[in-house]
Design a protein around this nucleic acid. Sequence first.
DNA 1: AACTTTGTTTGGTATTATCAAACAAAAGGG
DNA 2: CCCTTTTGTTTGATAATACCAAACAAAGTT
Lengths: 262, 262
Amino acid sequence: MGANIKLKPKLIQSIDRALQILESFSNEEKELGVTEIANRLDLHKSTVHGILTTLEYRGYIKKNVKTGKYQLGLKLLELGNLVHDSMDLISLAKPYLQELVNKHQETVHLVVYDRGEVIYIDKIEGKGAIKIMSRIGKRNPVHCTGVGKCLLAFREDHEIEMILKQDLKKYTVNTITDSEKLKEQILEIRKNGYAFDMEEIELGLRCIAAPIRDHRRKVVAAISLSGPSMRMDQERMQNLVTDVKKAADMISRNLGYIDMHF
Amino acid sequence: MGANIKLKPKLIQSIDRALQILESFSNEEKELGVTEIANRLDLHKSTVHGILTTLEYRGYIKKNVKTGKYQLGLKLLELGNLVHDSMDLISLAKPYLQELVNKHQETVHLVVYDRGEVIYIDKIEGKGAIKIMSRIGKRNPVHCTGVGKCLLAFREDHEIEMILKQDLKKYTVNTITDSEKLKEQILEIRKNGYAFDMEEIELGLRCIAAPIRDHRRKVVAAISLSGPSMRMDQERMQNLVTDVKKAADMISRNLGYIDMHF
DNA sequence: AACTTTGTTTGGTATTATCAAACAAAAGGG
DNA sequence: CCCTTTTGTTTGATAATACCAAACAAAGTT
């Protein structure tokens, strides 16, 4: 669970269960039955039924009358859109991300940092046949993604130390699990203003990432351009750095960031 | 509440309250405090606090450490996106809607029917200075919107009768509140395959709407092109009908609909 | 610095969510 | 086609749990 060291606070059981039910749905499992959910969360089906009734009444769940199963409701589309619209960052960054995609035909991500993890808040796919497995709202660790290392590099020292102290889970042979080595790279990233991910979370996946700063010069987000290793040799990656950094800088400027170099 | 005749079922209080809290947020009120919510929903602040803690733990709510107030969380972005992705209709319709917007520079909507009401599931804004007040996820009555009348016209007769029997709320001087007159119009819409909204829900707002059918020839959605009356005179509207119908037909075809006219 | 207003924590109480069991309605299989 | 199995729904008794109130803490305001 990343650097989320927070202890589980006193939760309201029924609400917590309701939220867990919502999260049981996924792109692979768009429809779930009562007993299916009950087994998964180890609850009684009558309990699940009651929760579903409440969720359905408010539009968070919809029952498919044909199959009798349940699926996520349109209320979530509404609330999701509300969140989307409140994030100025997304709409502001969109044109620059689109430009990157158009020019290089690789998938681009926009992410923010949240409690020791990275959250994808926008994504534009390249035309390439190879799709990157990612999803808006998805969380990933910081130590093995380009954007993650970018965001980590500009956090406060004590927070970095905290992450480094924790167990750096190994995802591939390239994942950096040695905290000393990661620290070195963080210093590099700070100096250069960009990061690479050399198949550190998934074999065959490489990316270039760069940080986004707001008007207070604080790093608040990061973008990345990812592609399959076969298209991402060292030389091309080095060439892409300029464009990725430029896009990130343009977004920063739109957030009120003023470059002090002159 | 439209034709939603459903009685309030036995709801789980705490969950229902939690959902009501989520819905308290809006574009105008992105941040709310504990007591603010408590007063609004007539709950004790300790109760609200407990619910918020649970919602926050799961990421549905995020506390702004600067202001101390709460706002909607990124988990809703994730779930909203999940719903979005499961609706093939949206992505499938997008290019045709975009084409309409590009050509006519007016706002376009994509809607579905749900329990006697219309729900907006996508929207692309025109470049025009006058913005249409609408929002993805918003519900509107069927009797006074172009899309609503479109969707109603192709429902089963008994459902139409049910809607007609109900009180047709007056929104403007142009709102059709006479069920006989509405019935006549519905027959017209069935025959012609498109509907007008002549400032029936909001003064100064007109639109052209057309139905979308799936592979079973069933009307499952509708689109509309809306604009301010000053740009929407009778002549232009009549001219727009062709393009709106054409876009709707193209989307229908993408859903597997096969036209039997030949 | 005193006073509001706000968010948070606490624990007793009664409401309420939960469980189990029985029912109903489909689905599957012989 | 009927019987079996699985699934969704309803019920009511019980104990757990969400709720309220009151007290506390921390800001914000005058």
